[in-house]
Design a protein around this nucleic acid. Sequence first.
DNA 1: CGCGAGCTTGACGTTGTTCAACTAGAGTGG
DNA 2: CCACTCTAGTTGAACAACGTCAAGCTCGCG
Lengths: 229, 229
Amino acid sequence: MKFDKNIDCSKCEFKCDVYRSISDKHFDFNLLKPVYVQYKKHEYICKQGSLVTHAIYLLRGSAKLYIEGLNNRNISLYILTPQSYIGLLSFFETPLYSYSVKVLEDTQVCMIDLNFVKDLYIKNHEFLLNLNKAFGKSVSSIMGKIITLNQKNIRGRLADTLLYLSSLYNSDNFEMLLTRKDLGELSAISEENAVRLLAEFKRENIICVTGKQISIIDKNLLKKISDLG
Amino acid sequence: MKFDKNIDCSKCEFKCDVYRSISDKHFDFNLLKPVYVQYKKHEYICKQGSLVTHAIYLLRGSAKLYIEGLNNRNISLYILTPQSYIGLLSFFETPLYSYSVKVLEDTQVCMIDLNFVKDLYIKNHEFLLNLNKAFGKSVSSIMGKIITLNQKNIRGRLADTLLYLSSLYNSDNFEMLLTRKDLGELSAISEENAVRLLAEFKRENIICVTGKQISIIDKNLLKKISDLG
DNA sequence: CGCGAGCTTGACGTTGTTCAACTAGAGTGG
DNA sequence: CCACTCTAGTTGAACAACGTCAAGCTCGCG
């Protein structure tokens, strides 16, 4: 983890909502004290149960957002990629994170004191509405996830995850940054079953797997497996 | 379902956020066209997949909020009691409901056109912040639910639900409005197992069950069962 | 060269869903 | 007032699905 406190927003290549909000309304930049933070693979960006003190905006890299369950069994909800809010679901009146975020590939974030952000969304409702939109999206994706986790069989769940990854990487041929265990947590299945099913899907010519490289060969069939659950 | 369109907010005994927001800021009441709606048991208040057109505020009665899953298997997330927002999780940029709400006991709600509400939270950030707070609470309760559903055994899940109900009714001795099936959906277990486990808990002197009347005898043990999962 | 992390496979046992059959009570109409 | 039907609740038995355990493998790195 490395800090950089000398940030000049005007030189930042990422024109985030906060920046736009401030410059649009000609608010004072001096109160904003953004901090860039570098995280290495496997580091926590935020930890379930700890205090929400900053708004965190993911600039580079990627991370997994997951809930820490019982006996070290976690469930990943989704993967965060630039540019997205990290504290989002815990911004409002939830003083503690209800989930954890851990780095997948070396990551850079920008942290802004939460009090400043709160101040900002009192002054600028458009900014707040933007937050809310992102918020709403997350929630509806979580709803879908709950059903998937509880009611689909493991084949359906893994199929779901593979389709999700292909939409995330925007390609039917991608290299996962996830271990088999991560893949399991994302599908809420055990690591062993993740392995077994990958082999099974390969045998059935639905996908091609070489290490972490995945090619989806028969996307329609994969969708059917996901639907049948 | 019965309508009543002649609502005079100043005579309404429920001083909702919308009302307060308007009167605090001296906004115009004439644009607000609230409608009272009466629902009978088992009626839908809103249906997963349908358009979100109104903000709905629960005034009397109670209802269950659930996700419709596969093969008619639903998962209830929680029970709504007065006074709470119903459209809440779908207010922002999610044009469709990602869940359904169905009446448990005859219910009265107040519906306000969503465009009016949107207009309102552009003019009044406090109102919006109130929405957001309620929003944040829901989300963190959902996070907990996901783990419970996926990782606790059925005894733990039912114990959770009983504890939840006792906190909802604010008593260790309450009459559920739920059928055994409802109870199952709230715990994400089958109806049969809900029945079996109630009998089991009764045999173990943890609870006393007579029809829909439930008394929690050994709350600590129930908590332990919930924790052990 | 050896160690450890990640991956793989098989066998096993638990868990929970499903099916089926049966009971009890509430509501309905002849 | 009695059959009827329908819904809710109950119980047992069978089966399938998954997680877990254990063992072995591979590859990269010190």
